[in-house]
Simulated scan of single mutants.
Amino acid sequence: MLMTINALLPVILVIAAGYLVARTGIITGDQWHGVERLTYFVLFPAILFKTIALVDFSTMPTLSMGATLLAAIFTMAALMLALRPVFLNVWGITGPRFTSIFQGVLRWNGFIALAVAAEFIGSDGVALVAVAMVFMIPILNVICVLVLSRYAGGEAPTTAKILRDLYTNPFILSILAGLAVNLSGLPIPSILQSTLTILGSAALPVGIVCVGAGLDLGALRRPGPALMSGTLIRLLGMPLLATGFAMIFGVTGPALAATVIAASVPSAGSAYVLARQMGGDAKLMAEILTLQTVAAMATIPLMLYLLV
């Protein structure tokens, strides 16, 4: 347990540093927006492309890991939809609030997952999380859009827009480009490798600083059933479910650790954007994201200790 905490402590401290930087005003307003865009469109794509282009897939259980994560996603989505009447009748949680819980449970923060995997597993951890992204990002976008369209009453994006969002997603594009280079056997020039290494080395710390900057601890003064359920099911239920499917599909070792990490990290900041766009409860979504991020500092080490 102590070894797990020691591996994750640097990530926790960098998140705390981001929170302090934002609260002291060293970086403010639109400046954070620029840093986030740099991270999203340049730094993380660099590390994902290089990792996928150079990884030896023959040593990784790609298909079994993908099957594990997809099975966990579909099962949890079905469970959440089945619990929808309970949320409404017991706690009076309406459609828009339900969609924020749904997104909070299903989505995952790739920034944190990559950083945790790098610390806990090493370089192979980054590659394994990149594999998880290939399977998870497209299907999660589609599922969450459909649920928001059904229960939040907002205008759903057209199929063309959903597809455009997927094929213009810099994470997906960089992974697919790296996969193409990997399968082609073409070497990456040493100058390009060095450039990607420099960019990629900034991706994890800058991305995690941005996560800390987005925390709003003042939103957690009155945690209710919607906030607590969206947090507990994500941070405890999802990793347990994913581990169960990992046992079924024979996922072990570093791949199991990467699977647990992907299932244990907080939800993604993009959930807040989608909630605002489609009529979900954006305020609740922000509260869920904050509480999950804070609580995950304790639950991720616990899940890794118990399940890996």
Results as ranks from 00 to 15, higher is better:
7 A>D: 14
8 L>G: 06
9 L>G: 11
14 V>F: 00
25 G>M: 03
29 G>M: 03
34 G>M: 08
43 L>Y: 02
44 F>E: 00
48 L>F: 06
51 T>G: 08
59 T>A: 15
59 T>N: 13
62 T>K: 06
69 L>D: 03
78 A>E: 02
81 L>A: 06
82 A>E: 04
85 P>A: 11
102 F>Q: 04
102 F>N: 04
106 L>D: 05
114 L>M: 13
115 A>Q: 08
115 A>F: 11
117 A>I: 07
122 G>K: 07
128 L>I: 09
128 L>Q: 10
136 M>L: 15
141 N>E: 05
143 I>S: 06
149 S>R: 13
154 G>D: 05
154 G>Q: 05
159 T>E: 11
168 T>I: 06
170 P>Y: 04
170 P>M: 02
171 F>K: 00
173 L>N: 07
176 L>M: 05
178 G>A: 04
179 L>Y: 02
186 L>S: 11
191 I>M: 13
194 S>M: 12
199 L>D: 05
204 L>A: 08
212 G>A: 07
216 D>N: 15
220 L>G: 08
226 A>N: 01
234 R>T: 00
242 A>V: 12
244 G>P: 11
254 P>M: 09
261 I>V: 07
271 A>V: 12
274 L>F: 13
275 A>C: 10
279 G>F: 05
289 L>M: 15
292 Q>C: 03
294 V>C: 00
295 A>E: 00
305 Y>W: 15
308 V>I: 13
